[in-house]
Amino acid sequence: MERLDTIPVVSASSPGSAVGVTGNVLPLLHEIRHALERLARDRDPTVIDLRAIPFAPGDEERLLSLLGRGEVSLVLSALGRSEIRESGYPGVWVVEHYNDAGERIALQIEVTDIPAIARSQVADIEESSTRLNDLLMNDNG
């Protein structure tokens, strides 16, 4: 007997068309475009939580494939894995958070120069400075 996960899943609609069966991806692309204009004009970043968007089957894949992949990909290891990658449109980032069990717990589009979570955090910087200081003190001592 075939295992369930060996049966290929075929999406009836072809990605590549922005409209798809329901056209639910289009307004999202417009939202991203407006966010980009805001970012360019006012340096004003935007985060779009894709969990709040009622996607049809295949819409998420369609959106991500339309956005494409850009030059930067980051993998974050904190409380599970996270993937942060720039899309084919610089300024538009796709952020995926996974938990320890490898289940996705968040999917966000960030329209910004770099997602905040990728930066080293002030508290962590202070702590690492202390830690490095301690290390050097111990070595010297």
Binding site: V47, I48, D49, R51, A52, L76, A78, L79, S82, V95, H97, N99, I105, A106, Q108, A116, I117, Q121, V122, A123, D124
Partner: peptide, 25 residues
């Protein structure tokens, strides 16, 4: 041993979970 980054990620997931806008993070 959870870093600030991990905490931020936890908060993002929690905001998403509570259906609150990301600006609430």
């Amino acid at each position: 041993g959870v870093t600030r980054r991990g905490f931020l990620k936890f908060c993002s997931a929690t905001a998403s979970l509570m259906a609150l806008p990301p600006t609430m993070v």
